[in-house]
């Protein structure tokens, strides 16, 4: 019945083939998602539900992450800049780091950990309990009902979370820099205004939107093609978080090199 020859599942060739196959499947799912997104009927209520789950429910953790990131950035850069009397640049450093890099990336990673894992677990469970098949049998496209709302919601909510993260991060930097370390408040704020461009913010938000698509798509894919019962769901969840996070960091480099 089964092949007599033992298959080496860890051979690099097989791993690469598998990765490419997976990339292709994710790409196919992305196209299907885009197609289904613009096809009637629009499932707005599903999208809003997912927006609440991905956006509103992640806001607290994103705010906490943002504030403390801004605070530690101010603290670290202060000690560096103090050596050559550039304390005034702490504000600009915090603002630029938050808007261009840390805001989008940390937000995406936090949402991956919180919502991406939940997506994979939810869809994985639906797969193993045949709920996805049930949708198909009802002549309903499961991608439209399950994947599209999540991807669209992540696409819209990641920028919103990111701008909140940027803002509270700068406030965190302000609290540490001006209130605790005693940096001149005027210098702190004017340097931010001088060095921060609107493009920095906008490009950060575009990045965030891309991360939203990536993390939701990867997580949905992993959940959607789960097999092997409860254990398979656990495996999918882990893989979803790992693959999403790595994809975010890789695409971050690519997007940054394209934009700035």
């Amino acid at each position: 019945m089964y092949s007599k020859k033992p298959i080496n599942y860890y051979s690099p060739f097989l791993q690469i083939t598998k990765a490419l196959k997976e990339l292709g499947s994710i790409g196919a799912m992305f196209l299907e998602t885009v197609y289904q997104t613009f096809r009637k009927p629009f499932k707005l209520n599903y999208i809003f539900k997912q927006m609440e789950f991905i956006g509103v429910n992640s806001s607290v953790i994103v705010i906490i992450t943002g504030v403390f990131t801004g605070m530690v950035l101010a603290l670290q850069s202060y000690h560096g800049f103090r050596k050559f009397g550039g304390e005034g640049l702490v504000g600009a450093t915090v603002a630029l780091s938050m808007t261009r890099e840390l805001g989008p990336v940390l937000t995406a990673l936090m949402v991956t950990g919180r919502a991406g894992s939940a997506m994979a677990a939810e869809l994985g469970t639906m797969r193993v309990t045949e709920q996805i098949d049930a949708l198909t049998v009802m002549a309903l496209n499961p991608v439209k009902y399950l994947v599209v709302p999540r991807v669209v919601a992540a696409f819209f909510m990641l920028p919103v979370l990111t701008i909140i993260s940027d803002f509270v991060g700068i406030i965190g930097g302000y609290i540490v820099g001006v209130k605790l370390l005693g940096i001149n408040e005027g210098a702190f704020i004017t340097k931010i205004i001088k060095h921060l461009d609107l493009d920095d913010i906008y490009n950060g938000l575009i990045k965030a939107a891309c991360f939203g698509i990536i993390l939701s798509l990867v997580s949905c894919y992993k959940g959607f093609y789960t097999s092997g019962g409860a254990e398979g769901v656990g495996r999918s969840t882990t893989e979803a978080v790992v693959v999403s996070s790595v994809s975010i960091l890789i695409s971050d480099y690519v997007l940054t090199s394209l934009m700035f």
Binding site: F48, M51, E52, G55, V56, S59, F156, M157, P159, V160, L161, I163, I164
Partner: peptide, 10 residues
Amino acid sequence: LKVGIMILIG
């Protein structure tokens, strides 16, 4: 409503 408020804040 929640989503709307959050987007408004953003």
